[in-house]
Computed example of a mutant assay.
Amino acid sequence: MDTANSKGRDNDRRETESERADRRWAELIQEVRVAQTGVQILFGFLLTVVFTPRFAELNDTDRTIYVVTVILGSTATGALIGPVSFHRIVAGRRIKPHAVVWASRLTLAGLILLLGTLTAALLLVLRVATDNTVVPWLVAGVVGWYLLCWFVLPAWARYKHTSVD
């Protein structure tokens, strides 16, 4: 929790520490719901690939990319479901502000793992679909887009609109 930058803004809301933790928890869980759904659908599809006839035709490199993709998808799923489990285990212990911090960290880790999953999945699909030398460049462009949308623009907005007290 970024107490130095958030105290002034949160105090403007006239919230108690408990109210602030409740609000942050509700916001975080809503954000996690969006990411969880996407990663779980993607992971489900990834699990079925190995059972298709085409899988046997993949070369060693593509099989390795597939295995890495499944592992990344599995770890992303774990990290994005983690906040729910975390909350359930610590509920009633009066440590919600700390739980929010840890759940936020798990969510960020899940988003980074999701980025890896999407990158590896896109690489595999484009390699199999096109067998073209521009695939790494296409994947790099999409990853750049993800980085811009998920991390660069939010970081820029945070920097640009954070008042220094």
Score class of each variant (00 low, 15 high):
Met1Pro: 07
Arg14Tyr: 00
Glu15Thr: 07
Glu15Tyr: 12
Thr16Ala: 03
Glu17Val: 09
Ser18Gln: 11
Ala21Gly: 04
Asp22Pro: 03
Arg24Glu: 10
Ala26Lys: 08
Ala26Cys: 08
Leu28Ala: 10
Ile29His: 04
Gln30Tyr: 13
Val32Leu: 07
Val34Asn: 10
Val34Arg: 09
Val34Gln: 12
Val39Tyr: 07
Leu42Ser: 05
Phe43His: 04
Gly44Trp: 08
Gly44Val: 10
Gly44Leu: 09
Leu47Glu: 08
Thr48Leu: 15
Thr48Lys: 10
Phe51Asn: 08
Glu57Thr: 15
Leu58Val: 10
Asn59Asp: 15
Asp60Ile: 08
Asp62Asn: 12
Val68Arg: 01
Gly73Asp: 02
Thr75Val: 15
Thr75Ser: 12
Ala76Glu: 02
Thr77Phe: 06
Gly78Trp: 00
Gly78Asn: 01
Gly78Glu: 02
Ile81Met: 10
Val84Lys: 00
Val84His: 01
Ser85Cys: 10
His87Arg: 11
Gly92Asp: 10
Arg93Asp: 04
Arg94Lys: 13
Arg94Gln: 14
Ile95Lys: 05
Ile95Cys: 07
Ala99Asn: 03
Val101Lys: 06
Ser104Tyr: 01
Ser104Ala: 08
Thr107Cys: 02
Leu108Tyr: 11
Ile112Met: 13
Leu113Asp: 04
Leu114Ala: 13
Leu115Trp: 10
Thr117Arg: 03
Leu118Arg: 01
Thr119Arg: 04
Ala121Val: 09
Leu122Asn: 05
Leu123Ala: 07
Val125Lys: 09
Val128Trp: 04
Ala129Ile: 11
Ala129Leu: 14
Thr130Lys: 12
Val135Gln: 02
Val135Lys: 01
Val135Leu: 01
Trp137Asn: 09
Leu138Pro: 03
Val139Phe: 01
Val142Arg: 00
Val142Glu: 00
Val143Gly: 02
Tyr146Thr: 05
Tyr146Pro: 01
Tyr146Ser: 04
Leu148Trp: 12
Cys149Ser: 15
Trp150Ile: 08
Phe151Cys: 02
Ala157Ser: 14
Arg158Glu: 11
His161Asn: 07
